[in-house]
Each structure stands twice: as C-alpha cells, then as structure tokens.
Write a protein that binds this DNA or RNA. Structure first.
Lengths: 339, 339
DNA sequence: CTGTTAGCGCATTCAT
DNA sequence: ATGAATGCGCTAACAG
C-alpha cells in the first residue's frame, strides 16, 4: 500500500509484516532487541517491498543528515580533485555522503555555498577558504554550528582544526636545492597573493634568499600564460637576467615551462625550474619537471577522519596538522637523470 | 526561542513576527500573496534570527530533496572532473545541489551508490554506467523511480535519455586522418572492452581499416604502463611492425606517448600518434599530441539541463543526444606545425 | 491577504 | 521483546 510516491514506507513494512513500527525501526537501526524470527521476517518484507528508509525523515527526527559539505575552489584542479576523491571514499565508509560545492576562490560565492549547506543541514564541513577569515565568513561558520576542518589553507580562528602542508618549509627546501645547484638569480613566480599558501611559500623563499645573500626576485602575476610570459621575459631581459624559476603553484609551473620552451630557453642548462605541486605529466615532459610533492591523499584522509571525530560528539580539541611535503627530484632543476 | 539544535525554526520566526506559520512559509517560497509590510517584517525577523529553512523538513513535505545524484567512474579523471564541474554549476542555478558518488566502473559499487541515492531521495540521476545494463542495474534504476540521464555511455533501456559523443564517427575520422598520412599499419590501442565507448571506437576503427583494405591491429590490454608497453613493443617487433597508434582513451594515449618516448621511437616520423580525449599538456609535449577532442562542457550542460527538464514534471520523451567531437590537429600525427 | 490544522516518514519515550 | 502514541519542521488545504 505505497504512498503517493509509490515508495513503501516504514509503516507499509510494519503492516505487511504484521508488527509495530517500532520493531521495524529497530531492524533498520541494527536489529537490537528483536527476536531472530521477527528480524528475519521483517527483513524479508523489506527486500520484498524494496524498502529503503527515507533519509529526509530520519534527518528530521535525528537532526543528522548524514552528509558532509565540501567546499573547494574547483574540482578540475587535480589537487582538489584528488582530495575530493579521498574524502568521498572515507566518508562513505562511515555512511556519509558528500555534498560538493565550489567557491572559485571567491568569498561571496563561498558565503552562498555555506548558506546552501546550512539549509541542507550538513553534519560537518571541509573547507579550503580563499581568505583566512572575513568577518562575514566567521559569522556564517558560527551559524552553521557544525564541526569544521579547514583544508590546505587555515581559518583565522583557532577554534577550527586545520590540515595543511608545510608550505614554508617546502619552499625553503626547493630554494635551497636551487642554491645548491649554484643558482643565484632565482625568480619566484607567484600566484594569488591573497592565498595563505602562496604567502607562506613566498615567505619561505625570501627567508632563504636573504639568509644566503641573494636578491629576492618575486613576480606575483602569473594567473594566465600571457602574464606569466610577460613576467618571466621581463626578468630574463634585465641585466643579469635569471637562472632559475620556482613556480609557486600548479598552473604557474606549467606556464613557466611553456614560456621557457616557446622561447627556446634551455632547461635546466640556462634556467632551472622547480614547481610547487606535482602533476600528471611532470615526469613525461622533456626535461621532466622537479616539483614539491604534496601528500594529497594523506592530507585528505587525515582531514576527513579528523572531521568525523569532531562530529562523533566526543569533544576533540581543535588541531593543527601539517603534512610533510617531499621534493621530487627530476631533471628540470639540473640534477642528472636517475638510472 | 530556538530548539535543541539552537537553530531557529519557521514557527520561531512566526512567533517573533507575530504572524501565522503559513505566511512565513509563503515568504520562504517567494512571498506571493503577502502584504509588503508583512513581507518586510518577516524577512527582517528571519535575518535577525539567522533563519534558514530546514531542507529535511521540506523534503519530507514536498517529496523533493533538491538534490541530484551524479555517478561517475572517478573524479580524478580530468574528463569526468570537468563534467562534474559543469553539472554543479548548472544545477546550483536551479537551486539543486549535487550528491557525488564514484563507481570506479565496478557494477557492484554502482548498485551500492544507487541504494545510497535511494535513501537520500535524489530528485534525478546522472550516471555514466560501466555496463549498458545488467538486470540488477535496471531494476535498481526502476526502483529509484526518478528521471535518469545516462552520460558518456548509454543504458540499454530506451526509456532513459542519454548524452553521448559520436564515438564511432570520431574514431573513423581519426583513422582516416592517419590513413591520409599514408599510414598502413595502425595499432588501435584499446581499453576496457566492456565499456560502450571503447567498443564503439574499436568498431569505428575496424570499419575504416576494412573498407580501406588494411589489417586491423587491435590491442585491448593497456590498463597500465607495463601492459601498454608490452602491447606496443610486441607489435613494433613483428614483421612489418606498426607505423601509427590510435589510443582509445585518455590514459592509454599517455602510456603510448611514454612508451614511444622511452624507446626512442621518433614521433611522428616512425610512428604517428593520435589519442582519444584531449588532456592538459597535450599541446605542451614535444611533439604535441593530436587528439579527438570531446566537447565535455557541452555534454555536461546538455545532460544536466535535459535532466532538469525531465524532473520539471512535464513529461519529456527520452532523448538520445550525440555531441560532435573534433579532431584537434597537433604534431604527433604527422601534420606540419601550424603558424 | 492571513491563520489553523493535519500530516510527510521516522525514532522514541513509555507502557506492556 | 514489542507496540501505541507523540513530534521533528515544514507546506497545503481550507476556512475566514
């Protein structure tokens, strides 16, 4: 006797199995305190009817939607795509489903995303915030009133856990590596300077150049090929020029590579190249590209599990976790081919 | 006077605004038939309280969850990542949110995914099925009883709309292009032969080779680098060898490229290469890689809008839409550099 | 234009 | 071990 949706309800099951709704409910929730034969009978009826509990009803009753919200800049960015994949797989093991929204690193959009999640009553939130925390963002997060874990970039409030990578250290290592190769005029090719990650990386770079007594050459404009080209070639043509580039994120690495290639500048002979963040064909290009590798899967798994812990009720204090990066040596930095 | 979740409810708003719940409900749903001052007053109270409607309650009442389910093999596959990005952006414009689940092209997992969606009562489904339709899958889809649009690969039932690309034609074009370059021994490097897309592409290839009177050389084992290498080198070493490779999907293209590069086989002089599906660095590699480009964004937008149409209630008959591909000429096929 | 009321499907006291 | 009844937050009749 299904309802208007022709979908069977719990009470349909109860009726057909000739039991009370309570018992059916118990079966749905693990079947404790239910006689074995009863349990079997109800389960039979459930499969017979093709019954599946209505999550909306359960959410209303339990105040738990069994969803977690994920806000990332973009799902086409390989780093975040990988991240999202891991989140999905960890979440589903705990019977959670992921609501995915993108922010394109725009604060207003992020606020809208949070509003949507508020309506959908997500039980927890993973967010890679473009800014560490405007007032509006912080208020919105407080209103959401669910556990939050910041990923890749922190939130300004210490109340929220964060899972990041060691941007500062990683940048230092990369710069030191270039210095070891004897490079003296290293162009640090930036990205959006408002992003925490970028700022940390720049700071790491500067700490090295200044401690070693080199000039700090930083260009932040590299949002697309033309601007990257302009920035690089401007520096190339200056007196002294440059002999290395450290590109601070995925895309700028690729632009830098293309610029050098298109201008016939030999890598690494004339200019060394290191990029932040590994990418699919980094080892296939000739020369292959040395990069700072982030342990994405590790970060994502850690963040999701941490969030689930926060959600479990036992009050876990906010944590700040930094996942180590590793320099993936290939040939664009000047190292000899391995094997 | 918030409830146990400390979240205000509709009736909290009603009380504070000293109106009935119906009026508040009307405001939430567009504010028709509400006096202007009343509307303003209620809206003020809503923002004051930070009220957001509880979607679970609305779902229960309206039998619409405002979610659409998306099942793809993997979110790290650039093709599907791009697809998902477009789905999200189109869906959110209509106030829908996307529930993302991956199948890894495994039928059992797909069934579980559908069960999860059934509980969450998605209002519509986009699915890239690994197989065109086992009995179990078809039953599960019928039970879901919401509009379904198959993407990238069809479902066997004519009852479901599908948005595909013209795999057969595209493969023919690619092969004809290689033939025009005078290639006579073209290796078709396959993928999972159970996938509809792969089968169509193989068929397209064979139709050309046989109509032109060439041998059909097909290798389906290219799931990873070693097997791709084995397949390619086996053919290379045979009497006559091969003078071109048409790789039938994203990954196999990359493997093929790497194999040729690692074995020092000059491309396109000795062996031409064309791949199915464009990828980020295809134009950056040297030689750049000629590919069959799929209009991903177009496919995704079309599919999502079609789904939303189906969901809108007006019964739209199932449609079969094929989005045209285009051969992106670069240098690995043997064409001269442009400009 | 506005308010009262009765469920949507489920979990949960509190009985038995 | 089981069942009857209540309410989660919201919308849709119906009045008025």
């Amino acid at each position: 006797m299904p309802n208007r949706n022709n979908r069977p309800t719990l009470s349909d099951v109860a009726k057909l199995a000739e039991v009370g709704t309570t018992t059916v409910s118990r079966v749905i929730n693990g079947g404790q305190h239910v006689a074995p034969e009863m349990l079997a009978r109800i389960q039979r009826v459930m499969t017979e009817l093709g019954y599946q509990p209505n999550q909306a009803a359960r959410s209303l009753k339990n105040a738990r939607s069994k969803t977690i919200g994920l806000i990332i800049p973009s799902i086409t960015d390989p780093f975040f795509a990988h991240f999202a994949a891991v989140v999905e797989s960890v979440a589903r093991q705990q019977d959670y489903v992921v609501l995915l929204l993108t922010s394109h690193d725009r604060g207003e959009r992020e606020l809208v995303d949070l509003e949507i999640f508020e309506r959908h009553r997500v039980d927890g939130l993973l967010i890679a915030p473009p800014r560490t925390g405007s007032k509006a963002l912080m208020e919105q997060l407080k209103r959401l009133s669910v556990p939050v874990v910041a990923i890749d970039r922190p939130l300004s409030s210490q109340n929220y856990s964060r899972v990041l990578c060691d941007n500062y250290l990683a940048a230092q290592h990369a710069m030191q590596h270039l210095v070891k190769h004897g490079r003296k005029k290293i162009l640090v090719l930036g990205g959006d300077p408002n992003l925490y990650t970028i700022r940390q990386r720049v700071d790491g770079c500067v700490s090295i150049t200044s401690s070693v007594g080199l000039d700090s050459i930083v260009e932040m404009e590299a949002a697309d090929y033309p601007s990257a080209e302009a920035a690089i070639m401007k520096r190339m043509k200056q007196k002294g020029g440059i002999d290395a580039i450290f590109a601070l994120y995925n895309q700028s690495t690729i632009y830098a590579y293309e610029v050098l290639q298109n201008h016939g500048i030999p890598v690494p002979q004339r200019v060394s190249l290191i990029g932040f963040d590994d990418f699919t064909l980094a080892s296939t290009l000739r020369p292959s590209v040395t990069v700072v590798g982030q342990a994405v899967a590790d970060m994502a798994k850690t963040a999701t599990q941490l969030l689930l812990n926060h959600m479990s009720g036992e009050t876990v204090s906010p944590q700040q976790i930094e996942i180590a990066t590793n320099l993936v040596i290939r040939q664009s930095c000047g190292c000899p081919p391995s094997t």
